[in-house]
């Protein structure tokens, strides 16, 4: 019982993942700045931001539905932290693993977007409403290629459990190379999930101020910010576990370090991608996802189906 609680609250649960999320935000921001030839923030900047936001006054718009408005950020935060618990971190096992957890992680990572939608919608601000409608519209575009490409990898491993996938690829060391198309598809789709350029349409500041977050302030905004940071870590961890399932050694510490490096590598790729492109329009984004990402995801599934027949 105590062990489970420790898992949930301390490591790899709430405390660890919050710190990891904020550090990931630092890495992202610093790298973004360095790529733009700027100095960038000091390492404690994300922590300082969160502490400042928590200390600030919380304003609930008088026309907003207070229950929904307050529940949405917590709901989102819980979902992303839970998603992280299922990724095999330091060993080819994870404390809460069960068959089918990959589907659950994928759906848990969908919840923040829906929570943002609910929060934005019930805050009744026009900008928040436009932003939340955009967030959901975008969800339908990137979610399909993301699911398809991640499940393609699971298809090859013949399992819907993250631990089993990792075990399968450990047994067949070089099989992960077949999934590289899927990796790039899901990396781009992850940009949409994390609302980063070129898919930061729901919170495009020059158009809709802060999108669904426009009316949020104080603690609730801090939760939302934390939620996006953790979502980045959880998403990167999922991608690392599914597409780079190697580097698990006897020593738990070494495997853990390797895993963290993999997550950092994926975050660095995200920063790089968001540095070199402009924001797309929502119609262009949907076009791009359905006309380019989905065919590639389908191709990945096809490759894996063929491989499954050949390699057996």
């Amino acid at each position: 019982m105590i062990k489970e609680l420790l898992y949930i609250l301390v490591f790899p649960g709430f405390l660890f993942v919050s710190i990891a999320g904020l550090l990931a935000e630092y890495v992202d921001r610093k790298l973004y700045a360095r790529l733009q030839n700027r100095i960038g923030p000091p390492w404690f900047q994300p922590f300082a931001d969160i502490i400042k936001l928590i200390a600030k006054e919380e304003v609930t718009p008088c026309q907003a539905n207070p229950r929904m408005f307050h529940a949405a950020p917590l709901f989102a935060l819980t979902a992303v932290i839970t998603a992280f618990l299922y990724t095999p971190l330091w060993h080819t096992s994870s404390p809460f693993s069960f068959n089918g957890d990959i589907i659950m992680v994928l759906y848990l990572l969908t919840i923040p977007t829906l929570a943002f939608f609910i929060g934005g919608w019930y805050s009744t601000s026009l900008f928040a409403r436009i932003g939340s409608v955009r967030a959901v519209t975008q969800l339908f575009a990137y979610e399909v290629p993301l699911f398809m490409s991640i499940l393609a990898s699971a298809l090859l491993a013949n399992s819907w459990s993250l631990v089993d996938i990792v075990l399968f690829y450990t047994r067949h060391p070089w099989y992960w190379c077949f999934n590289l198309i899927g990796f790039f598809v899901s990396l781009v789709a992850l940009l949409g999930k994390l609302e980063k350029t070129p898919f930061d349409i729901p919170e495009a500041e020059t158009e809709v101020v802060a999108g669904a977050f426009t009316e949020y302030s104080g603690k609730l905004l801090a939760f939302l910010r934390l939620c996006i940071d953790i979502e980045m870590v959880s998403g990167a961890a999922l991608l690392a576990a599914v597409f780079f399932p190697f580097g698990f050694f006897q020593s738990a510490f070494l495997s853990f370090v390797v895993f963290i490096l993999k997550i950092l590598g994926i975050i660095a790729l995200i920063s790089l991608l968001r540095t070199v492109v402009a924001r797309l329009r929502i119609d262009q984004m949907i076009d791009f996802c359905w006309k380019l990402l989905v065919p590639f995801a389908l191709l990945q599934i096809l490759i894996n189906l063929v491989l499954k027949g050949v390699l057996r």
Partner: peptide
């Protein structure tokens, strides 16, 4: 213009 279309990198470089 870069900033308005969400291309902050162009903003940073051209302002530099």
């Amino acid at each position: 213009a870069g900033h308005e279309i969400g291309f902050d990198t162009l903003l940073m470089y051209s302002w530099r």
